[in-house]
Amino acid sequence: MRIGAIVRIVPDLVMGIEIEESEIVPFKYVPNERDEHALEEAVVFKEKTGGNLEVVGIVDDELRDDEAMEEALALAYAKGADSLKKIVLNRRTFDRREVARAIADHFKDYDVVMVGIQSIDSFAGYLGGILSGVLGYSYVGGVVGVDYDGGLIVQKELGGGVVGKFRVKTPAILGVVSAERPITFVPLVKLRQAMKEMKVEEIEVEVPDMGGIEVVRFYEPEKPEITLLEGDVEELADKLVEVFKSLSLV
């Protein structure tokens, strides 16, 4: 079983971002949380199948040496990835169609590729899904668990706590929403060791220009003000019913 996992880095919302009309300026990057789940699930899957796990970092040229990418790959190595690659996009793009085309050639040799269903900075695509379209692979998103019984059985969230089990043909790409176990903590000593020992193959790719989506502006949503309701119970109940109605709860 050849297993691939994609890790990406995204602006660290905890540290805050600056919103400018034409761009978003982050202070710091972190590994994309959904990708951390994808990686964890890939490790679980490796343990289940005894397969070979290759973790691929995808990063644009400007951030090729960002420490968050380094950390993401080191975490993967510490958790048991067999090999590491870093695909460097020659330019930055928000459009996942372009990313998918740029990297597609490098994802032809896997039976299963796990990727976070979405990264937080995305508004133009689900990378895994698009990539599956480009490669002609099977795709399932919203994945919360993967089993193997000779074939691939994928658990996908269907809303309201309901989970669907799907039999999926390989090769397949899986958009993971959360791993079946909590993200394993990697102690600092192991992380440092991984940073020292790991070998990363770097691949540079060109990003095609496909156009079609133009950013007009970025801006902050208006903060919802709290509506504080006071008064007698009868009145309050009426007001609440109105609130429920506006949220289409009744």
Partner: peptide
């Protein structure tokens, strides 16, 4: 910890301390 067997809550706190210097995932 080295064997990767960490209770989830604690794991989250440790990751946050490592990344942000506090367990709350605060800036």
């Amino acid at each position: 910890l080295l064997e990767g067997k960490v209770p989830e809550e604690l794991s989250t706190a440790l990751i946050n301390i490592m990344r942000y210097g506090n367990p709350f995932k605060e800036s």
